[in-house]
Design a protein around this nucleic acid. Structure first.
Lengths: 139, 139
DNA sequence: ATACATGCTAAACCTAACTTTAGGTCAAGT
DNA sequence: ACTTGACCTAAAGTTAGGTTTAGCATGTAT
C-alpha cells in the first residue's frame, strides 16, 4: 500500500509542510519518489513516522531521533548506543510522568478551589486557602 | 525571609537570566527592590515561581501563566475563567500522561529488544521482530 | 486539451523561551 | 578609598521546530 503526502498528512494528522520538513531533515531516508519527483510513502514510512511521533512525545529532539535512525542503518556495531539511548529515554519519560502527576495534584487542588469559589462567588471563603497558597508547597 | 536573585537561582535551579526574564515578562509582579534597584525576593515570590514551574511542566505557556496571574489580581469577576483554565489544563495534563504511558510501552519494548540484541551481538535474532516493527503499532 | 487540485523546492519567516553581550552600578570586606 | 563579586538594563542573538511564500511542475477529471 502506498500513499501521497496529502493522504499521509490526513492519516497521521501531520501537516504536509511538516512531512516535507522531516524529509528534508533526513528523518525519512526511505521515502521513494515517482519519475516526476513526487513522494510515495509506504507502510515502512508510516511506521517510521509513528516512531517519530512517539519519541517526540517523550521529549526526544528531532536531531536525536535522526541519530537513532542512522544507528539503525549502520547496523549491529551500534547496538550499545541504541540500548543506552532507550534506557536513558525510559528514565526521562518516567521522570516526566512523575513530574506531571505531581503537577496534576496541584491542578486538581486548583479545580476544587475554583469550584467552591464559583459556588460562593468569591475566592475569599473561610476555610479555603489563600489564592496562591499551594497544597504541594505547604504540605 | 528574603533572598537575592542569586540565592533564588540556586534554591530553585533557575538561572539568574531566566529569573530576570520572568520579571521583565511580568510574571513576578510582586517582586520588591532595594533603594539601589536590586531585586529582593520573598516567600510569596518563591511560591509564585514554584507555581510557574508547575504550570510550565504541564505545558502551559508563559503567556497563559501571566494571564492567570492577571486574573488573580483582578479578583472575583474572573473566577469562571480561572476555573475553566484549570479544567482545561487538567484534561490536557491527563491526556499528556496517557500519551507518555503509551510511549513508555514502546520504549520498554525497545529496551527489551536491545537487551537481547546486546546479548546476542545482533538485532537479527530469530523470534525478535524487525528493527522498526513496533509493538504498539502492530498489536 | 485544459483546468485546477496537488505536488515540488528553496528560502525567508515565525514563535517561545531563553541566553549572551555590553556597559554600567551596588555593596561588603580590607 | 578600593577591590571584587553580585547586581542592573537594554538589546541582540540563539535554538528548535516548524510555517509561509513564491514560483514552478504534475496529474487527473472533464
Amino acid at each position: 500500500m502506498t500513499y501521497s503526502i496529502g493522504e499521509v498528512s490526513k492519516m497521521l494528522d501531520i501537516t504536509v509542510s511538516t512531512l516535507r520538513y522531516y524529509d528534508k531533515e533526513g528523518l525519512l531516508p526511505l521515502v521513494n519518489r515517482t519519475g516526476g519527483n513526487i513522494r510515495v510513502f509506504d507502510d515502512t514510512d508510516i511506521e517510521c513516522l509513528n516512531m517519530i511521533e512517539c519519541l517526540k512525545t517523550t521529549g526526544m529532539s528531532l536531531k536525536d531521533i535522526k541519530r537513532f535512525f542512522e544507528w539503525c542503518e549502520i547496523g549491529d556495531s551500534t547496538i550499545d548506543q541504541r540500548y543506552n539511548l532507550f534506557q536513558e529515554q525510559k528514565e526521562k519519560t518516567e521522570q516526566q510522568i512523575a513530574r506531571l502527576n505531581k503537577a496534576l495534584e496541584l491542578i486538581n487542588y486548583k479545580c476544587e478551589f475554583y469550584r467552591i469559589a464559583k459556588e460562593k462567588g468569591t475566592t475569599n471563603v473561610p476555610g479555603l486557602r489563600e489564592e496562591l497558597a499551594m497544597k504541594f508547597l505547604t504540605d
